[in-house]
Each structure stands twice: as structure tokens, then as C-alpha cells.
Amino acid sequence: MNTAVDIRGLSVRFERGGSSVTALDRLDAVVPEGHVFGLLGPNGAGKTTLMHVLLGFLPPTAGQASIFGTDVRRAIARQRIGYLPEHPDTYRFLTARELLHTAGRLFGLRGRDLRSRSDALLERLDLTAAADRLAGTFSRGMLQRICLAQALINDPDLVILDEPTGGMDPFGRLRIREMIAELKARGKTVLLSSHELSEVELVCDTIAILYKGSVITAGSAAALVPAGESLERFFIRTIEAVDAGAADHAGKGAAHA
């Protein structure tokens, strides 16, 4: 199986308030193509930082990362990526259709192909009726959906979702779950960060728990979580074990899916 994401010895350090903060600490991870990979971790664990490095927003202090074999620092690496940020927002002075056309043109799409993809996404995300309305008039859920549609306009092979269900109602969460399942069925790779542990358990092939910039444990939910224990309980126990100084016991190291 080919590798979608390859991370080797990745470290990111910031200067904050005069002191050095390690956001990612010599991280190794490999995500194979077609997998749904869930990143779990408490606030400040480094999940968003890792996604920002993969998207080229942030240069690593040490180590390297590649997407489908291309260094993430090259703009072309993002040709096959779709990204939904944690707090998605968009140009509110454009209509839903204009937003999709703009996003598509940045991926080099045009003409009939762009129009048909836009129409299909608007329909799939239940936005056809609002296609010619300004995004400024949209509800929060509609904004989330149009941002998701923009992330999918290039039919990406790797979809990066940062807290995609944050603030969504149960119907919205169900729609996201169905979409992830559909992407997986089409052989796409999904990298997902979420605090909704039950959701992660449902959709992810592999789960990695990130804490203080390191992957402390990784594997399938079935392999990681002992029988009779919930993922939530396992997550809390693992974090507490690290805090108690039992990092080695918790299995600090590489996350090979």
C-alpha cells in the first residue's frame, strides 16, 4: 500500500513569551493511502500544529514531512489535499457558487468540469437552493458545509479535517460521518482531528493519541482499547499515565498505521 503522509523526526519549536515551547517533538508517523487516521489529544497537544506543518503554513524546526512523496514545503504538494480548518470561514461577499468556482480555479479547474463539480457538491451538501445566495446570509451550519464543499472541489486524495463537527448539530455530525465513509469507500485518505471520541472510534481505521507534541500510542481502536473499556476512558487513562511519569509504559514512539 502506498504512503499518503510520511512524517520523520518532525519537531516544531516556538518562541512564546520569551521562552521556547516545543509544539511537536521528534514525531514519526506514516499514514497509508485509503486510511482514515484519527488524531486525538487534549488542547495544546500539537494536533493543529501538525496539520499546519503538513499544509505548509509552518516550517518544521527539524525533520521532514511529505504528502504522496512531495515535500510539504512545496506548494504543489497541496494539489491533492482538501482542508477544512477548525473554525471555517469564507468570503462572505461571494455566493456559494462563486466560492466553489474561485476555489476550483485555484486548483486549475475551469469550464464544464468546474461547473459540474460545483453543482454536484452543492447538491451533495444540500446547498443547491442557496447556490446564488451570498455566504454572508448563511447560518453557521451552511457556512461549515460551503467550506467543506470548497475543500472537496479538487476531488482531493488526502482530506484534512480539523475538528469538523465542532458546534454541529446531530444531523450535521451524521452528514460528516457519512461523507468520511464515502471518501474512504472511494479510496481517499482522511486525516481527522477531533475531541468527539465516539465519532473517531466509529470512522477511523487508526487512532493516534498526541500529547505534548509526541505520539504516545497508536493503532486501531479495537487493538488499543481493552475489552469493556470505552475509548474515552482509555484516552484519559493514557494521558494520566504519561502525566504520572509512565510515558514509556504508555508506548511513546512511532505511529505506524
Binding site: 499544509l55 503554513f57 497541496r78 480548518p85 471555517p88 470561514d89 486549475g108
Partner: peptide, 17 residues
């Protein structure tokens, strides 16, 4: 401020562009 810079730079768009 809007956060749209993230979605913009997540596409194959260089900072110079």
C-alpha cells in the same frame, strides 16, 4: 482575521502568489 488565509494557502498557492 477571518481565517480564510488557511483555506487559501491550503491550496497550491504560493505566498508570493
Amino acid at each position: 482575521k477571518r481565517g480564510t488565509v488557511y483555506a487559501m494557502l491550503a491550496r497550491p498557492v504560493g505566498r508570493g502568489q
